[in-house]
Design a protein around this nucleic acid. Sequence first.
RNA 1: GCGGGCGUGGCGGAACUGGUAGACGCGCUGGAUUUAGGAUCCAGUGGGGCAACCCGUAGAGGUUCGAAUCCUCUCGCCCGCACCA
Length: 956
Amino acid sequence: MSSTTPSDQPDQPEVVSAAKAPFRYGAVLSKAIESRWQSWWSEQDVFRTPNPGDDDFDATKPRFFCMGMFPYPSGAGLHIGHLTNYIPNDIVARYYRMKGRNVLHPMGWDAFGLPAEQYAIETGVHPEETTRNAINTFRSQLKRFGLSCDWSREFATIDPDYYKWTQWIWLQAYRSWYDHHEDRARPVRELVELLERGDYSVTDDLEIIEAPAREGQRSWDDLDHVEQRTAIEHRRLAYLSEQTVNWCPKLGTVLANEEVIDGRSERGGHPVHRRPLRQWMYRITSFADRLLKDLGLLDWPESTKRQQTEWIGRSEGAEIHFRLEEPFEDSLVVYTTRPDTLFGATFMVVAPEHPLVDRLMKNPPEGVDIHAIEAYVSTSKDRSDLDRRSDSGVKTGVFSGIHALHPLNGEELQIWISDYVLMEYGHGAIMSVPGHDDRDHAFALEFGLPIIEVVRPSPETETECYHGEGINVNSSSDLLSLDGMHTAEAKAGVIAWLEEHGIGRGKVNFRLRDWLFSRQRYWGEPFPVVFDEQGHHHGIEDGSLPVELPPLADYEPVESSEPSPLLSKAVQWLETTAGEAGVPSDELDSAAPVRREVNTMPGWAGSCWYYIRYCDPHNTDRFVSSEAESYWLGPQEDGPGGVDLYIGGAEHAVLHLLYARFWHKLLFDLGLVSSSEPFSKLFHQGILTSFAYQRPDTTLVPVDEVEEVGEEQWIEKATGEAVQRVTAKMSKSLKNVVNPDDVVAEYGADTCRLYEMYLGPLEASKPWNPRDIVGVHRFLQRTWRLAVNEDTGELQLADEVDEAVEQALHRTILKVGEDIERLAFNTAIAALIEFTNTATGHGGVTKDQLDRLSRILSPFAPHVAEELWHKLGHETTIGHATWPTHDVELLREQMIEMPVQIKGRIRSKIMVAADADEDTLRTTALSDERIVDLLGDAEILKVIVVPGRIINIIPG
RNA sequence: GCGGGCGUGGCGGAACUGGUAGACGCGCUGGAUUUAGGAUCCAGUGGGGCAACCCGUAGAGGUUCGAAUCCUCUCGCCCGCACCA
């Protein structure tokens, strides 16, 4: 590394008021220091991280890969909340670098997606341009904070060099299937081999089964080309499917389940309607069990693991076949988690979308009131999810006119149609047990259906609608008796009986659904797939990637009830030939006309694997080299591998964080990455709030519409009414967003970094109070003054080591290191402040002490630390200095003060040798003057001695 | 409704596996210095009391020699899920 050091003196401050102390640490000086070192770091490429294979790579060092969730560059620019993500990362990165690790600390941009497109529509400027501008703004704002990122690894998800591989990964899924025997994803060609060999076979419905063909079943070779295609389609991990989807007319696109909250779009809060549509899906459900199980390997916040657990929603129960009455020959299949309550099933309910309902309407049996059914089905179709949810608990429904037979007692059970049963879960049909399920209970009461009690908490206790486990009653027939059994036993009993009679089986169910992956928007990755004239899809060969997003002048969505992908406007682009598009020649003749897929990928696509690309961002041959991948992401002794520390907002708990895990597992199965999980340790930073003003009716008033009229008193300008100051999440509409540039201008970046970390625990939501910033600024000022003469700018240091200062420094080195490792930056900074105060009171620090102090300060305030470091004569960056060591011996105090309690109340304090044994402590405490006085001649029953902690005397 | 988390000075927050509650910062009070300061330095700062001492970690109980920390109930706030059978 070059030793060129910029001039030792900062630019001469210009402000008159500073004339008295031109080298006092303040806005002017901090700015000079910060810009000097920022340019030096960047010119000298100080934080470039060598990769395995590079000349300057040191393979003996352990790695540390830490990153924040990359920002979505918006037109509004960086705000203070972004920094709660990137500053902690930078502190940790700088710390581990000093502790001798190879630190990978990159930055990039999440740049495709809806908000950028909407912003472009609002401003009339193309998203490519607005997004590039926003990236430039974000980059320079972030650099102003002195982040020690390796900027040479920067990329954006909209770079064709990047999304080429996003498309490539999608193709890996498209070309894979899930082997449930081996519990892993495998290439489709291996599935074809299994079918060709006859190990696997195909049913008449073209479903692949993992067993050889049975007598009379057609073999793979007997199927025609289209049939073979269809069979494979049923297995691809990226597949086209006609599904009921969440269509948001306002956003002009469909949305994934994860993006719909309470029937509204997660972004914008627009109503979402359910409608059938043919869309690209990801078979994430195949990974459900592993996504759930492997949470156990992760050092993640419990709340996030819980959210993913609930989202995946594993439940154990049974599938039960109820025979339909004559003339139907088949049965109605239901899923239940309480097979033990089978004797309590008094009717059945199917969802309005259930196939049985269709059959009834097409071919109504005698006596069925078809009009009522049609009316009900059509009403529920029009109702959104939001309307369907009956908060009041009132249930709607209609009798289908037909019955099913209870498998155990032969009773005829009415089959009802109601939208409280969801087609998407289980089989879209339930057995209703109104005695033990609230919803069934409400339905039974509404429509006067029978209720039977079959479980009691104890044999004597009758209850109204008991959901818990207990003892079975009223559960006997000629075929089976469960009476007197406990719930677990009864469940097992029913399942065993069902399996024995072939009318049901134990079954594990998941709430997780497959991931709807297409969007009808412009600003996203195009799918690397085309359709031939028969409508069959063909993946694009690797060599023809990326499929570049065509420039489109008119990307305004048409608000309509019919989804219409914007890319269908790019007529030139979408009509092409197989050869032009890159369809393998053994699939289609190169001259064959094809149409490109006009849907685009959702905003989540690019963020599903960007951490992998950071390891090797400029690779043109592979998405990542295996050397780089296994070094930076490979498994470690203490975890599954992946990013060592990932910091980001909790709002991504079941979106990005679940999707990325899914992609990673897919890549892992295909041997493309070496770890089974992407992020071994995850941390959520808390939200920053700031002052907002509230009317008496609790509505909030924008900050600039409020005037301060006295101490702690504010009025709304427009009305003159008093408003109350509260803290609220920063938002554009409340105009209470803090711009980091303003803080930097007033105090400098080091102060801003320090303040933001000093506010409180990283994970907590905390209020931003500008009044408090001055505290940490003063700390930097005092630390500076501790070592630098404010008139001359020269170092002024103590000659003699003061033992108290030396000991305090060792204690601080230890404390700061420990606190950084547990991400407790607020207490680390408090320790630094304490040290500076101690040193100030003891005549300052020596040169050697300043050397160590600047090193432990440097992760937090890198610029001022770098300045001090160079003043000490160092010529390379402090960022690569080693972390100072602490002497354990020195930390051990000779004499310590110990509290002495009588009956748990502190009555005195004694000075004792730190290593005094229990007897000595007891004797010293009992002979303490005050203790003797207070005890008088009372008998002493007991003395509790906790060495180093406390002595507690219990008199009689 | 279900699940989870959190309630500590005027404010932000400290307090390791139960062991001196209030570290550190803001604010406030007094003093020093300065032509002046929203600068700096020193001292003080949970409440009550002259004091010994008493009371204090949302509230009420409990366990313990000892509880902010563990247990039970109540209240308040925040987050997640929400007809998933």
